[in-house]
Design a binder for these strands. Structure first.
Length: 563
DNA sequence: GAGTTTGAAACT
DNA sequence: CAGTTTCAAACTC
């Protein structure tokens, strides 16, 4: 029964071995990096000049009316004359959210910096899967899942008005369900006219509506974003997606003219809404973690994070009992760990891994600094060149977008994927407080060789820790299994006395474990549970809450679980 | 899936 | 600029 778990651990061991040899698993990680790296680098490259002097509205509009594509990047036909760059990205890079999960910055129209691009842009490749192209602001929605391009259903607007999300986002309709669509290459003249007309009415029509903000995962809310125009809601309380602010994950601001607004900081309704979702999130995490670890993963075991659909009456579908098997649950299919791993354990595991990574990052940074000092006198020229290259990357974001400052995490995408979002924040803060503080993911990619070694080392450390945790889990499962089999044998031989048994959570009568030769009564299996995911030694956790990894120096974060 | 509600966009 | 209409997404049933 533990074979699946052993497989997991052995796979991790294999990965670690590969890292030691300086190789990567030739599977998903590579795909991840291949996809991600060029995106980031292109953003860095492209953002740089723009931030120097973005065109004014008038300039932009004139550029648009001139119809001149002079400033457009050369088209690179991706099938029907579309540019190689994802056009949506091309349009919205001024304000578009970055991949970092802690960033929201999404605008309702994550659109054009240059309105001429709207006019001229052959905007869309037939590629449908890019989340960057998604026109709506909830790109990194509260569920944190990347979302695909949304398809409009316009019927009467010919997709040439701002009613159309595709048009509003400056993209061609592609794979939409619209009727009589003119927002395509074939109708470029009409489309261009429509863009002009739209710009005439409102020169800011294709500008982002949402100012940048920072996602605070604890609150599941953007703290600093602001709707440039403000919403005008009357009946939704600004707590439904009708509200542009709510949809963009931002609080209503003084710009809004809404009535009976409940989308403000401290709003009970809003908190109830988000905390409810958070509970669901954590329950789902537990479910997935249990399934993954036990290997008892059904078809839904690794399904993408479920969208938080609402039931009738606005109730969220709750996963709260997803892992709590209320059935007798004694069959062989039930995992012995099903009642063992609690949400806080999952979080603790994440925390531990992050803390491990943080420590490793720190160590590596220190090492690197030492090496630098040593090398400085001899190879100062080369050293400065390297730092310049890092500096260039950092200079690429001079606009000070806080949300984009997820730099400082010398972790590979694969490792980052293992981290909880708010732990990424923490990691960022740890690394940002480093003396040289210049270890950003983008920089890591550009500063490839040494950094990739760091990646390997970091991943090795993290995976080693993960392996240890899983091993402990396996040990505990085996222990529990042995208890169960002991119980079964004893039950067959002679029913145990009532004093010998303890009612378990799942209804199993269980013999208290023998500890040091004495029978110790336990009311729940979790009481006996060994500390599977030991916190880092460097951290203190006197409060008993589940943030064992939080470095003491960091500002304390509220644990949403305990709220 | 159809019908309703909602609020932004468009229009007058 | 305010009021009205149109529109498509969000939501409900």
């Amino acid at each position: 029964m533990n074979s699946n778990r052993r497989i997991i651990v052995s796979n991790i061991n294999r990965t670690i071995r590969l890292h030691r040899r300086g190789r990567r698993e030739p599977v998903e990680d590579e795909e991840e990096e291949e996809e991600e790296t060029p995106q980031i680098s292109s953003e860095i490259t492209l953002r740089k000049p723009r931030s120097v002097s973005p065109p004014t509205e008038r300039e932009v509009f004139q550029m648009g009316n001139a119809g001149g594509g002079g400033k457009l990047p050369p088209k690179n036909d991706g099938g029907f004359g579309a540019p190689a760059r994802d056009p949506a990205r091309q349009l919205d890079e001024h304000s578009r959210p970055k991949p970092a999960p802690t960033v929201v910055t999404s605008s309702l129209h994550p659109v054009a910096t240059s309105q001429s691009q709207i006019l001229n842009a052959p905007i869309r490749l037939p590629r449908q899967e890019s989340p960057k192209s998604r026109p709506r602001p909830i790109v990194e929605g509260r569920d944190g899942t990347p979302q695909k391009k949304k398809h409009c259903n316009c019927k009467h607007s010919r997709c040439l008005k701002l009613y159309c999300e595709c048009f509003a986002s400056g993209t061609y309709c592609d794979g939409c369900n619209c009727i009589n669509c003119f927002n395509n290459v074939d109708n470029e003249p009409a489309r261009r006219d429509a863009v002009e007309a739209t710009l005439e009415r409102n020169p800011n029509a294709f500008r982002p509506k949402i100012a940048h903000g920072v996602m605070d995962k604890r609150e599941e809310m953007v703290l600093l974003g602001k709707h440039n125009k403000g919403c005008n809601c009357k009946k939704s309380g600004c707590l439904k997606k009708y509200c542009e602010c709510f949809q963009a994950n931002i609080l209503c601001s003084e710009n809004c003219k809404c009535l009976d607004c409940k989308n403000f900081d401290g709003s009970e309704e809003r908190q109830a809404l988000f905390h409810g979702e958070h509970a669901n999130n954590m329950a789902y995490l537990q479910q997935t973690a249990n399934a993954a670890i036990t290997g008892a993963v059904g078809s839904s075991g690794f399904a993408p994070y479920p969208a938080l659909k609402r039931r009738k009456g606005g109730q969220d579908i709750s996963f709260s009992h997803a892992t709590k098997d209320t059935s007798p649950a004694t069959g062989p299919s039930k995992s012995l760990l099903a009642d063992v791993i609690q949400p806080q354990d999952v979080k603790a595991l994440c925390s531990v891994l992050v803390a491990v990574a943080g420590e490793a990052a720190k160590t590596l940074t220190d090492k690197r600094n030492e090496n630098r000092v040593e090398d400085q006198t001899e190879t100062s020229l080369a050293s400065s060149a390297q730092e310049n290259s890092q500096g260039d990357v950092e200079m690429a974001e001079p606009d000070g977008n806080q949300a984009d400052k997820s730099r400082g995490k010398p972790l590979s995408p694969a490792t980052l994927a293992l981290m909880c979002d708010d732990e990424e924040d923490t990691m960022f803060m740890v690394a940002a407080s480093e003396p040289n503080g210049s270890v950003d993911p983008g920089g890591c990619r550009t500063n490839s060789q040494g950094q990739s070694q760091n990646y390997a080392e970091l991943e090795r450390v993290v995976l080693t820790k993960l392996r240890d945790c899983l091993s402990r889990l396996i040990s505990y499962a085996e222990f529990k299994e042995s208890k169960c089999s002991y119980l079964a044998r004893r039950h067959i031989q002679s029913p145990p006395a009532a004093t010998d048994t303890v009612k378990m959570e799942n209804g199993i009568q269980q013999v208290p474990p023998i500890v040091n030769g004495a029978s110790r009564a336990t009311t729940q299996p979790t009481v006996n549970k060994p500390q599977l995911f030991q916190p880092m030694q460097t951290t203190t956790n006197t409060s008993g809450t589940h943030h064992p990894h939080k470095p003491p120096a960091l500002p304390e974060k509220k644990d949403p679980l305990n709220q």
